[in-house]
Simulated scan of single mutants.
Amino acid sequence: MARIPLVMGNWKLNGSKAFCDSLISELKTALVDVKGCNVAIAPPVMYLAQAENLLTDSKIALGAQNVDVNVQGAFTGDISPVMLKEFGAKYIIIGHSERRTYHKESNEFIAKKFQLLKDAGLTPVLCIGETEAENEAGKTEEVCARQIDAVINTLGVEAFNNAVIAYEPIWAIGTGKSATPAQAQAVHAFIRQHIAKKSSTVAEQVIIQYGGSVNDANAAELFTQPDIDGALVGGASLKAAAFATIVKAAEKAKA
């Protein structure tokens, strides 16, 4: 089966009401004819209602950058999957290295979030990836396998049906360094094979994005790789022209 790539913009802690208005209207114009590539944006949660309204009648899906492990109750400051769903969010990023680093989120904690999202009928975008030290020590595959297995061991391999994995080498996020297309492909192929050991059917359909300094200059070559199904884009997703170029590169490469 042909996988439809997903290019998703992670705005991180950026934006304002005015920024949201202008970027989304520019994206809607730039991406009006896109076919063969799914597109999503994940603004800060404060702007979900505004983004939901702006994206009406658009092909661009709405996402969010995180979710908590509780659905409701006395959990000050937390955001539940049910609330995200009510505001039209579909793709929810979990396990981003910034959350793992700054908020000490463990693989097991992230697997819990994965389960809640699946229960709510939302699509988890599970970020995995190794540090520079782990990469240099040859531990990339070991680290990625451990992060994936936390979900498989808890929920079974079928949890990856209709889910997304974003391979983001931590040494490439926001650093301007990107894995070469061949390096990225090797890890993506490993991830797919690792899942295939449990189920080739699940492995064949799971979307595996690349993330880590993806931009309008390097995207096209990354997307020609057989196991790279789109991208999770950081900084470049804040510029309409750059983000549209990345989307169109994915569309073209997979056509």
Rank of each mutant, 00 (worst) to 15 (best):
R3K: 15
I4G: 00
G9Y: 11
N10F: 06
N10I: 05
W11N: 05
G15W: 12
K17W: 09
F19G: 04
F19P: 00
F19E: 08
D21A: 03
S22Q: 14
I24S: 01
I24N: 00
L27E: 05
D33N: 14
K35H: 04
G36R: 03
V39G: 00
A40M: 05
I41H: 05
A42Q: 01
V45T: 14
M46T: 13
A49I: 12
A51T: 14
E52D: 06
L54K: 07
T56E: 08
D57P: 01
I60A: 04
I60L: 07
I60G: 01
A61P: 00
N70F: 00
V71W: 11
V71K: 11
G73T: 06
A74V: 09
A74Q: 12
T76M: 00
T76R: 02
G77L: 06
F87V: 12
I94D: 07
I94Y: 10
I94F: 09
I94G: 07
H96S: 03
H96F: 03
H96Y: 04
R100T: 00
T101F: 02
E105T: 01
E105Y: 02
E105L: 02
S106G: 06
N107C: 09
A111M: 05
K113Q: 12
F114T: 05
L117K: 06
L122V: 15
L122W: 14
T123Q: 10
P124V: 13
V125D: 00
C127S: 09
I128K: 07
G129D: 01
G129M: 06
E132M: 04
N135D: 09
N135H: 13
G138A: 03
V143K: 10
V143N: 08
Q147W: 12
V151S: 12
N153A: 14
E158S: 11
E158T: 13
N161R: 12
N161A: 11
A163P: 05
V164T: 10
I170T: 02
G174A: 10
T175P: 07
K177M: 11
P181S: 10
A184L: 06
Q185N: 11
H188Q: 15
F190G: 08
S199F: 13
S200I: 07
V202L: 07
A203F: 08
E204N: 13
I207D: 00
I207F: 04
I207K: 14
I208S: 02
Q209N: 14
Q209K: 15
G211M: 08
V214H: 03
A219G: 08
L222D: 02
D227E: 14
D227T: 10
D229P: 04
D229I: 09
A231L: 15
L232A: 10
G235M: 05
G235L: 07
G235H: 09
S237A: 04
S237F: 02
L238G: 11
A240V: 10
A241Y: 04
T245I: 02
K248T: 03
A250V: 13
A250Y: 07
E251S: 13
K254C: 08
K254Q: 13
